[in-house]
Nucleic acid binder design. Sequence first.
DNA 1: CGTCACTTTGACCAGACGGTCAAATCCAGA
DNA 2: TCTGGATTTGACCGTCTGGTCAAAGTGACG
Lengths: 213, 213
Amino acid sequence: MTNGESATRIQVERRARILEAGLDVFAAEGFRGATVDGIARAAGLSKPNLLYYFPTKEAIYVALLGGLLDMWLDPLRALDPSGDPLTEMLAYIRRKLLLARDFPRESRLFAGEILRGAPEMGEMLSVDLRELVDARASVIARWMDAGCLARSDPHHLIFSIWALTQHYADFEVQVRAVLGRARDPWAEAEAELERHFRRVLKPDAPPAPQDRP
Amino acid sequence: MTNGESATRIQVERRARILEAGLDVFAAEGFRGATVDGIARAAGLSKPNLLYYFPTKEAIYVALLGGLLDMWLDPLRALDPSGDPLTEMLAYIRRKLLLARDFPRESRLFAGEILRGAPEMGEMLSVDLRELVDARASVIARWMDAGCLARSDPHHLIFSIWALTQHYADFEVQVRAVLGRARDPWAEAEAELERHFRRVLKPDAPPAPQDRP
DNA sequence: CGTCACTTTGACCAGACGGTCAAATCCAGA
DNA sequence: TCTGGATTTGACCGTCTGGTCAAAGTGACG
């Protein structure tokens, strides 16, 4: 198997294992708190061996972040401008919540990066993220203009969706501490968020002024 | 000035300076990222001198957290069970948002601690925090029963308030990246949050069935 | 002025950490 | 079986970090 230009089967497998381990450790300890030794141990490799696949600790971190933003924005990207507005929005909210539920490590890694001021992500945020959000915000604005959704600022509406969904992943300890052991945060969140956003999104005055003769 | 039992004027002043500096550094770099030297420099002291006032780095951190939770819960504590429900809730939301706006370092410090699983705060969360939230949640539940507020789960309603208000402080870089430089996140947030929660809180059916003869 | 508790500091230490390197091991293909 | 690149590793290095310590400085009060 002469290596034409890129990865050996082992390289592919090892890199994946390292990223998986890195996600675990970075999400739990943060960038500064994570140690190369710790990641290597979690990946079942020796430290020098890990450094054979990624030159630095930072390289692992940025590799993770790179793949992350895409995944994180997928639900928003999937918002269909030609669908039914309320259905589309509620589906987006649900997708986002399930993403946070099923990938809490990714959510926390992302949150940690932003909390620290996004030193490794600044560019992505103000370019890729902003473009996508602006595009979707204008779709939402159109829906509001058409009277299909209650009027509000689309950007802040999106923020509210992010804030609420990620809260359950990023602040899970707090949520659990408050709710106690008997309750199921995620199941409740799913129901409550739908109720919450139905209220927020439902247009208040039905846009039919002349059907009461 | 023989020291009867507690602090010298210098001790008071130095401890305060150290906590202030610690807040700065911990909020920006996280617990692991912060260095004793860094905090000492920010406080204008030498490292051993700082360690003369606080025995360890952790001691500074927990001292900060201790004072923090109280401050952080004040707006919720101030919720008046005998006030007008909608007014009280909107006032609470506004207080919480202004707190996040005026004390973003505190907000981020808190967020970082929770993100990491609240290793130094577990107790406080599941005791003090939980008690207060349970108490206020039952007040809110009573308001809902009386038809003064739309029905929903009070705990999750509180979560939604926390999530939305703190989002603007903790994820400020992201918010700014998306909104661009021309817009003022905090001013907009104030207006949007009021609109948002008016919708969420306003009871849907006015509880007066017999005043249309 | 002398005392004594309070305060400050330079020098130092042990451990942890990110990263390097040369040597060893593995393994697919000839 | 031999070969050469891919892979793995133990030993090592310089730096950083949390924390210690003995000694020096400071100032209020007798």
